[in-house]
Simulated scan of single mutants.
Amino acid sequence: MYAYDTITEAVAELKKRGYTYDFNIRDNRLASDHLGEHYGHDDFEIIEVYRFEGESDPADEAVVYAIEAPSGAKGILVNGYGTYADDKNTEFLQQLHERIQKL
């Protein structure tokens, strides 16, 4: 596992290592506009997880996920938590949290 000091560094290095697609959470599903695909919480692999806690700036609180889709496409999901958490996707995020606890 790698160690990164910032979210920006993590994303840049993951992209260099082939995690080129951007994933987002929409309607409690993982989505990639570029791939045109949507995945349920068990339909992809979480390869790496990096958690960042902003000591002085709450905007720096986030989790970076390195993800592999069933097609083999690799991408990144960056999700804020704490003050900037997205309540609309709470169920999906809870399921992600449960999965990373098992890693």
Rank of each mutant, 00 (worst) to 15 (best):
N28A: 11
N28P: 05
R29H: 13
R29T: 13
R29A: 13
L30E: 02
L30M: 06
L30S: 05
A31F: 15
S32K: 01
S32D: 02
S32E: 03
S32A: 02
S32V: 03
S32C: 07
D33L: 15
H34A: 15
H34Q: 15
L35R: 03
L35P: 02
G36D: 12
G36R: 08
G36P: 09
E37R: 13
E37V: 14
E37F: 11
E37Q: 14
E37S: 14
E37D: 15
E37C: 13
H38I: 14
H38D: 14
H38Y: 15
H38V: 14
H38M: 15
Y39P: 03
Y39S: 04
Y39R: 02
Y39A: 05
G40L: 12
G40F: 10
H41D: 12
H41M: 09
H41V: 12
D42F: 09
D42I: 08
D42Q: 11
D42Y: 07
D43S: 12
D43I: 04
F44V: 05
F44A: 04
E45W: 09
I46E: 03
I46P: 01
I47G: 06
I47L: 14
I47V: 15
E48L: 13
E48S: 11
V49Q: 06
V49D: 05
V49N: 06
Y50L: 08
Y50R: 04
R51E: 13
R51L: 12
R51A: 12
F52V: 01
F52H: 00
E53Y: 07
E53Q: 07
E53H: 07
G54D: 02
G54R: 01
G54H: 00
E55Q: 12
E55T: 10
E55H: 09
S56F: 15
S56C: 12
S56R: 14
D57I: 10
D57N: 14
D57A: 09
P58V: 01
P58C: 05
A59T: 06
A59P: 00
A59E: 06
D60H: 06
D60S: 07
D60R: 03
E61A: 00
E61I: 00
E61M: 02
E61W: 00
E61L: 00
A62Q: 01
A62I: 00
A62C: 03
A62L: 02
V63Q: 00
V63C: 03
V64R: 01
V64N: 00
V64Y: 01
V64L: 03
V64H: 00
Y65W: 04
A66V: 04
A66E: 04
A66T: 03
I67P: 02
E68M: 11
E68A: 09
A69L: 10
A69W: 06
A69K: 06
P70D: 11
P70M: 08
S71W: 07
S71I: 07
S71N: 11
S71F: 09
G72P: 08
A73T: 08
A73F: 10
A73R: 05
A73N: 11
K74A: 11
K74H: 07
G75S: 06
G75A: 05
G75E: 03
I76P: 00
I76N: 01
V78H: 00
V78T: 06
N79S: 13
N79W: 06
N79T: 10
N79G: 08
N79V: 10
